[in-house]
Every structure is written in structure tokens, then in C-alpha cells.
Design a protein around this nucleic acid. Structure first.
Lengths: 109, 109
DNA sequence: CCGACACTTAGCCATTTTGCAAACCATGGT
DNA sequence: ACCATGGTTTGCAAAATGGCTAAGTGTCGG
């Protein structure tokens, strides 16, 4: 059983890197091999692999190796978790703004 | 003009810490002073201040000082940006899953 | 004017992250 | 069998992160 909080820590940390976000964007559309994913990124393969393993460790990506090719897939669950948290905050914030507009001087007693 | 990509990097990195997520959750509900925000967190104040400044630097939080009290507010824009990206990925992933279910052997030519 | 309160600055440390290069499997094609 | 392809492992250095303590600044209350 994985701690939800740590899952979120790891997912947000993973998504804090543009390379890794690009990988998520790619895998969201379709599964792909390591080399395919690596191709557009201007960095050494081992470096790129480390990015991939970060994504795997936080659960955003799963992968299986067949022959010498490793194919990567996106994993919906942690994505939904993060998206859910973001949306919840958005809703709460909107509620705050709304109530601030209705009672403009609520903070000045 | 702020680079969108770097804004995202910074926001995700900021949200990768549970203390900072807790602050965002608190500020989503209502503005608060530094000490109020600090109270529930078991860490030295300077340490906590650094978390706050991380949130400010990425734009998720704004603050103004009146007298000796600094009041913090959440900032909607970057939150919406991040939430938007998350939701977009969710939609794309759902589309992929859907199409995978409809054409089960699409990957075996 | 003096102390308490609310930060703020500065400096130190341990750990983690992010990049590289170089060498090393393992598989597939000819 | 052999070589190219596709990954993997290892080791290293620079930089960022997250925590602390100690000491400083500026306001308010009495």
C-alpha cells in the first residue's frame, strides 16, 4: 500500500521537469519505445533513462520489455489523483473569490 | 513576460512538497498571515518562510505586509495553468484508453 | 522607552537531482 | 558468427533542496 501523500510528492516532482512532461504528453497519446521517446530530446540516453525511471517510480508510467525493446505506457491512476487535487483547489479558490466579490469589505471589520 | 514552461516547472516543483501543498490548500480557502500558516507545521519559522518564498517565486502566492504582519493570498492564474495542463492530459489519456478498447489489436499489424 | 511579537537575514549541513561519459549486456538481422 | 541496435550500469561533478541555529530588523502595546 502506497502513501497517497508521497505519491503526490513524487508525481509533482516528476512533472516539474519539462522533459518528463513532454514524455507524459507523448505517452498520453500513445505508448512508445524508449528510443522513440528519447529521439526528440537533446540529451544523452542514460540521462533520459533516468527521467523515465523517475516517471516509473512515481507510477505515472509503466513499461515492459519485449526482446530488446522496452515499451512505455502511461498510467491513468496517479494522473487522475493529481488532476483531482488540482481541480479541487481550483474549485475552492473560485469559491473564495466569489464570496470575496459578494462581501467586498468582509476583511475590514 | 514570463516563460510558460518555466512557470510550470516552478509550480510543479513547488507543489511537490506536502508543506507547500498544505499552504496552498489553506490559502485556497482564505488569506492568512505567515504565523497562522506556520502554526500547524512542525518546523522552524525560517524554514517555513523558505517554503512560502518558493510559492511566491512561482507565482502561486502573493503577499503584502502591513505593520509587522505579512498576509498571504493565493493567486488563481498559475493554479489554472497547471490545472489546465493536468486536465488536458487526462482527456488525451482517456481518449487513448477508449480507442484501445474499441480496436483491441491495433498494435499488432 | 522597553519588551514582546512577527518576521527576516545569514550561514551551515546533509541529501537529492541532473547532467555527462564510458563501458557493458542482450537481441535481431545477415 | 558478427555487428549494429536498443538499452543498462557505473561513476562522477555541479547545482538545487530542505532542514537547522543564531542573530537582526521593525512594529505594536503598555
Amino acid at each position: 500500500m502506497v502513501d497517497i501523500t508521497q505519491q503526490m510528492n513524487a508525481c509533482f516532482a516528476a512533472l516539474a521537469d519539462p522533459t518528463r512532461r513532454a514524455v507524459v504528453e507523448a505517452l498520453a497519446r500513445a505508448p512508445a519505445s524508449v528510443s522513440d521517446l528519447h529521439a526528440p530530446h537533446n540529451m544523452a540516453l542514460p540521462t533520459f533513462m533516468r527521467h523515465l525511471s523517475v516517471l516509473e517510480k512515481c507510477g505515472l508510467v509503466r513499461s515492459e520489455k519485449v526482446g530488446r525493446v522496452r515499451t512505455c505506457f502511461i498510467e491513468a491512476d496517479p494522473l487522475l489523483q493529481v488532476q483531482g487535487w488540482m481541480e479541487w483547489q481550483r474549485i475552492v479558490v473560485e469559491k473564495q473569490i466569489e464570496s470575496r466579490d459578494q462581501i467586498p469589505f468582509a476583511l475590514d471589520p
